[in-house]
Deep mutational scan, measured.
Amino acid sequence: LVRYRTISKIPQITLNFVDLKGDPFLASPTSDREIIAPKIKERTHNVTEKVTQVLSLGADVLPEYKLQAPRIHRWTILHYSPFKAVWDWLILLLVIYTAVFTPYSAAFLLKETEEGPPATECGYACQPLAVVDLIVDIMFIVDILINFRTTYVNANEEVVSHPGRIAVHYFKGWFLIDMVAAIPFDLLIFGSGSEELIGLLKTARLLRLVRVARKLDRYSEYGAAVLFLLMCTFALIAHWLACIWYAIGNMEQPHMDSRIGWLHNLGDQIGKPYNSSGLGGPSIKDKYVTALYFTFSSLTSVGFGNVSPNTNSEKIFSICVMLIGSLMYASIFGNVSAIIQRLYSGTARYHTQMLRVREFIRFHQIPNPLRQRLEEYFQHAWSYTNGIDMNAVLKGFPECLQADICLHLNRSLLQHCKPFRGATKGCLRALAMKFKTTHAPPGDTLVHAGDLLTALYFISRGSIEILRGDVVVAILGKNDIFGEPLNLYARPGKSNGDVRALTYCDLHKIHR
């Protein structure tokens, strides 16, 4: 019993810090008490220290592992850092350059016999395009090294910054494609005289377009951006097909006994025919423009016929181009109408809503002055909100995010209106959640004399007048207030005048 009563005193000691020596009952000389009392004092002292730490809000209350900052290894790049964003855009520009100039170089340097010394005699450094290609190869190699040090988000939505895990993730992902696209074939085969082989191998750079397509997928929600990307894709495919079309004609031209190829026909049409040795002929500019003209006309199913396939190889390629053109029509131009419709969806919704308003007016036989006010209010409210119901949009977000959005939407009023000066951010967040926005066209009466005042109004834009009878008592403008002081009276009061809008007004109100 003594032991039980001794232990039962522990909660009292913990909360009230009572010393055991003052209790005459606990001072009985028993061996059990002498053993338990020192333990009680020690526990009391420890609990006292913990309570003191909690009340003082000291940093040592938290466990040590929670006080440590997340460790980022040296030379690790955050995937959302500004440097990584700028670097990704730079790589994107280099990939676009590669997609345009690599097929052009591979096709127009394929057994090209233009006048001038061969590239091997001039030297590697004197070729501007080769120098640019070398810079692109170096940048792609540097990009691989950067990807080995860039964080990523795993399946659990955690940012991984450990170098080993980053390397394994990159090896399992895009490393092989990036490595093949970054191989400097110019340096590996330079001086061997195989410019045709170098041009063909350099087309491996186009593998990076797969990554670019995935990154550009984030802009699919913007109709104008999608339309622009589709047109660029169409032009890029036409450019690639033009390079292939020229390569076919250029390879067949020296081996044909009869002059029936499209390059021969082009030379005869523009007065620059090929001679018996295969030299001469149109310039590279004429060849490229004509090839691009043929691919565009074939892809769009126009086909004027002034550039036509004559050999079997050219006919087979033309059939493939027609098939590609039909697929592009289905996948690209078939979506253009939907994209344009999405661009004008706001206008369509406006006309639909206006039609419903006019049908309501016609069905209920609203008189002319009231009908005009109804239409003007709808037009003004639509121009202010673009038909978007803010309350319906915010309803799907958590309250903390709703408060931040409301604070942002009402920031101008909260910053410049005098009653809100000096208020804490928590108070402003709470008030912003209570605001209701209303609009009024010129001549609209917001409050009639004798109406119950259940709200306090803040003028965000425009001006109003307060009338008693036919006498203008006051004219209020931006950041002015009218209405009933909230919670100042037990019952809502009545208006002693009319409140009429002089201009288009936007008002925020808080109800009782």
Results as ranks from 00 to 15, higher is better:
P184F: 01
Y222N: 01
C122N: 01
P442V: 04
P282M: 03
E376A: 10
F185V: 05
A381H: 15
Y344D: 08
Q269P: 01
R74S: 14
S298P: 01
I198Y: 10
H169P: 01
A106G: 01
Y124H: 01
K434A: 08
L129E: 05
E195K: 08
S276L: 04
E64C: 07
G223E: 14
V289Q: 01
V210W: 15
P369M: 03
R358D: 01
S105R: 10
Q365L: 03
Y293Q: 01
L197M: 04
S276H: 09
T445S: 06
M179K: 01
L207W: 09
D217V: 09
A213F: 11
L236Y: 01
L197F: 05
K202Q: 01
D186M: 11
Y97C: 01
F360W: 01
R214W: 04
G346S: 10
F101R: 09
E221A: 05
S331E: 01
G334D: 05
A125W: 15
I77T: 03
E121T: 14
L343Y: 12
L446P: 02
C243Y: 01
M139Y: 03
R205V: 03
E112N: 04
M139K: 01
A182W: 01
A403N: 04
M322P: 01
Y124I: 11
M179V: 11
R208T: 10
M139Q: 02
A204T: 05
N312R: 01
F83S: 08
W382V: 03
T102L: 07
V336G: 03
R356I: 03
S81Y: 01
E252F: 01
Y219L: 13
S105P: 01
I270G: 01
Q68A: 13
G261N: 08
D217F: 05
Y288L: 01
K436I: 13
S313C: 13
R373C: 03
T150F: 01
N306I: 01
P118V: 07
Y222Q: 06
F360T: 02
H380T: 09
I166P: 01
P282V: 01
K84R: 01
L78E: 09
A155N: 11
C232S: 13
D186R: 13
F185R: 04
A291Y: 01
P441H: 09
W174Y: 05
M256L: 15
L292A: 01
K434S: 04
A338T: 04
P128Y: 05
L414W: 09
I146F: 05
T352R: 12
I237S: 04
K418L: 09
A155C: 15
L209H: 01
L94V: 10
F185G: 06
I91D: 01
H380N: 08
V159D: 01
Y65H: 07
L446S: 01
P118H: 09
T120N: 15
V132G: 01
P254D: 15
V86D: 01
A235H: 01
I146L: 07
L90T: 07
A224L: 14
I270L: 08
N265V: 15
S337V: 05
P103M: 01
D257Q: 06
P254E: 15
H162Q: 10
D143V: 01
G422P: 04
M256W: 03
A432V: 08
F304W: 03
Y288W: 01
D133W: 01
N265Q: 14
S308G: 01
C122F: 01
P398W: 03
W174V: 04
G325Q: 03
Y293P: 01
Y377C: 11
T352L: 11
A204W: 01
L176G: 12
D137Q: 11
K172E: 04
C243V: 01
E112Y: 15
P184D: 01
T233P: 01
I248Q: 01
S412R: 10
L94W: 04
L374W: 03
I135V: 05
F333V: 04
Y344V: 04
S81C: 04
E359K: 04
E376V: 07
S194G: 15
W382K: 05
G443M: 04
I339T: 03
H351P: 03
F296A: 01
T424G: 13
L266H: 01
N368G: 09
V357Y: 04
A449H: 12
M256G: 14
E64G: 10
H351V: 03
Y97G: 01
S81A: 12
G267F: 04
K287V: 04
L209A: 08
F171I: 14
Q68M: 15
R259D: 15
P82F: 05
A235E: 01
E158P: 04
A130L: 01
D137M: 01
I77G: 01
G334Y: 03
L216K: 04
L401C: 03
M231L: 05
K425C: 04
L134N: 01
L197T: 05
A213C: 09
I405H: 02
S283I: 01
L188T: 04
A69D: 14
T311R: 01
E114M: 13
R358G: 03
G123D: 04
Y384V: 04
N335R: 08
A182Q: 07
T233E: 04
G164Y: 11
D178Y: 01
G396T: 13
S412G: 09
L176D: 01
S105L: 01
L374T: 04
K287A: 13
Y124D: 01
L206Q: 01
A106I: 11
A348S: 06
P367M: 03
C232V: 05
I340Y: 08
G271E: 03
T352P: 03
I91K: 01
S297I: 01
I324A: 01
L428M: 06
R165L: 07
K66L: 12
R205K: 09
N265L: 13
V226C: 12
I146T: 04
Q253N: 14
G191V: 03
I244S: 01
N335Q: 15
W382R: 03
Q127N: 06
R205H: 06
G426Y: 01
P419G: 10
E359W: 01
L370V: 01
W262M: 01
S298Y: 04
N250Y: 13
F83K: 12
R371L: 02
Y124S: 03
E158K: 13
E114Q: 15
R342S: 06
N335I: 03
I144W: 01
A107V: 04
P282D: 01
H416V: 06
A423C: 10
R165H: 05
L187K: 15
W75Q: 01
I324D: 02
T150E: 01
A119P: 07
W87D: 04
V393G: 02
L206P: 01
I237A: 04
D404V: 02
G116T: 14
T203G: 05
G223V: 04
K202S: 03
C406L: 06
V307I: 15
A167M: 08
V226T: 13
A235K: 01
L236K: 01
L92D: 01
D286G: 01
Y274R: 03
I144T: 05
D178E: 03
E114N: 06
H439W: 01
D137C: 02
